[in-house]
Write a protein that binds this DNA or RNA. Structure first.
Length: 482
RNA sequence: GCCCUGAUGGUGUAGUGGCCUAUCAUGCAGCCCUGUCGAGGCUGCGACCCGGGUUCAAAUCCCGGUCGGGGCGCCA
């Protein structure tokens, strides 16, 4: 039933490289030769890549070469080239880097069983000269083309090899695309990209633990959120800003969705409330999904081919409908209660509660209007907006996908006297926050924003079961290398 | 931090006190064949996490250590 190893199903082009210039080591990318083979027959090319397989121990040798754009067969004949050179290629180990020069030719078609369709023509390079650029040690700690399952820990220890695997490469291409489409969308809505400091003197939010560091002679910390700085940028009149940058949290969590260093996709906009920025968010996600569907299906084909080899279901991308459902906190509590969960108004909605909600709302959904007592001091509230049990509601919201929280956001408190009262209500001393509250003393626009976990979004999109899969070199409780 | 669980060749696995000089796949090495193409055929190589204990006998049971995995909490 599996077509995993049907060579006709193997995508030969991994990304578009039609605009790439020649480099010192190649005249063409492999992807270009694969795509334009018919027009290139007879022309001389130099390509370079990793040796995926080296077949043939006699007078001919088949070298499957892969670069970042695709793979192609190089055909070597002992009679056609320097004999010792031929020998060095023929005995090369898998994943060695090899450069070949030769002419493009149509491949002889493979033998197919009676009645089987003849595959479309493919092209190869008939090699006249070649060079091993760097030998790969054998055996490989992680097989690049093997179907054997490899544990995540081993993969991350050998990420440089793991990344050579087609589906892993595809995931990181998708990651880049998602950020690109997200940026494009925000820019189209008038947001501008900023960068805020990651070395800070004090906590931007209470609750989370900071990594301490020495800043020359002074105690400092790694930033756990751009929150306060992006607000200051908006107060300063930048109006609509976004940042894609690292955040650091010294929390000893150990789950599939937490890292101690993660990339946060943050926006903040002036003259906006929580509903306004929820709109920005759902439009952005809708745009990302739409663009991915329109442009990047081939990356999913690669991922799904691998998933099939592992007995996993295919991932499919469905563009979510806008607007996303809104399930206000009070309603969410009722859903959990009705579903048999033990929860009271004022309790946090925990993962097992989210499972109950996700049963009704499996996709993206906002949970707005959390109790003010559960939100940080900078979250805005409207006097008189009270929950079903009478407590003050806030204009803070979460975005979940199924059981997983993607985003936390809200309208911010722009009234400095309320801000200071919020601090006191939470047992904090306003004078410790003057670096922040001073920004509000000279006229502050009402504003709102959110922070989105990029890896969590990618996890949803790619079907990865762990954020570590979509983070190049993840930093978790026990991993700081490589 | 809490609960549960695991560690067997390079990788992934089988194994439940003696059938284990340990299974299978992949890999690696060599040979044969070959314009191959998931190449194929043959031969070989390579492992029970560390330390202690129980037992006639330990990959298997117990204790400690180390390192993983799952869940929870917290969060994005």
């Amino acid at each position: 039933m599996s077509t995993v190893h049907n060579p006709n199903a193997v995508p030969r082009v991994m990304r578009d490289s039609s605009e790439w210039r020649p480099t010192a080591y190649r005249s063409h990318t492999i992807g270009e030769v694969v795509s334009n083979g018919a027009d290139m027959v007879g022309s001389e090319v130099t390509v370079a890549g990793y040796a995926e397989t080296v077949r043939g121990r006699g007078g001919v040798c088949f070298l499957m070469l892969r670069d970042g754009t695709g793979h192609i067969q190089a055909f070597l004949k002992r009679d056609n080239m320097d004999e010792s050179l031929f020998g060095s290629i023929q005995s090369a180990t898998r994943e060695s880097t090899i450069q070949v020069t030769g002419t493009v030719a149509q491949k002889r078609p493979p033998k197919v069983a009676e009645g089987e369709p003849v595959p479309p023509p493919e092209y190869e390079v008939n090699v006249t000269t070649a060079a091993v650029l760097a030998d790969a040690a054998a055996p490989l700690p992680v097989g690049v083309t093997d179907d054997v399952h490899v544990g995540l820990d081993v993969r991350l220890d050998n990420r440089h090899l793991d990344l050579r695997r087609a589906h892993v490469n595809a995931m990181f291409q998708l990651r880049s695309k998602v950020l690109q489409y997200g940026r494009d969308h925000l820019i189209s809505e008038g947001f501008q990209e900023i960068n805020t400091p990651k070395i800070i003197a004090a906590a931007a939010e209470g609750g989370t633990n900071l990594f301490p560091m020495k800043y020359f002679e002074t105690d400092a910390y790694l930033s756990q959120s751009p929150q306060l700085y992006k607000q200051l940028a908006v107060l300063g009149g930048l109006e609509r800003v976004f940042e894609i940058g690292p955040a650091f949290r010294a929390e000893k969590h150990d789950t599939y969705r937490h890292l101690n260093e993660f990339i946060s996709f943050d926006i903040e906009g002036a003259w906006m409330d929580d509903e306004d920025v929820m709109g920005v968010q759902e439009r952005m996600i809708h745009h990302i999904w739409s663009e991915v569907v329109a442009n990047d299906q081939s990356l999913f084909d690669i991922i799904n081919e691998y998933r099939a080899s592992q007995g996993q279901e295919s991932v499919t991308i469905e563009v979510p409908t806008v607007p996303f459902p809104r399930i206000p906190y009070c309603d969410a509590i009722n859903i959990v209660k009705a579903g048999g969960g033990e929860i009271e108004w004022g309790d946090d909605i925990e993962s097992h509660h989210c499972d109950i909600i996700a049963a009704e709302h499996p996709g993206f959904h906002f949970i707005p209007r959390w109790p003010m007592s559960m939100k940080p001091f900078y979250i805005h509230h409207k006097e008189g907006e009270e929950g079903s049990a009478g407590g003050q509601l806030s204009r803070g919201f979460d975005l979940n996908y199924g059981r997983d929280e993607m985003t936390s956001g809200g309208q911010r408190e722009h009234r400095v006297d309320v801000l200071e009262q919020n601090l006191r209500n939470m047992g904090l001393e306003p004078t410790d926050f003057t670096f922040y509250t001073d920004g509000f003393r000279y006229g502050a626009p009402p504003h709102a924003g959110w922070g989105l976990g990029v890896a969590r979004l990618l996890m949803v999109l790619t079907g990865a079961g762990n954020v570590r899969e979509v983070v190049l070199f993840p930093r978790d409780r026990s991993r700081v290398t490589p």
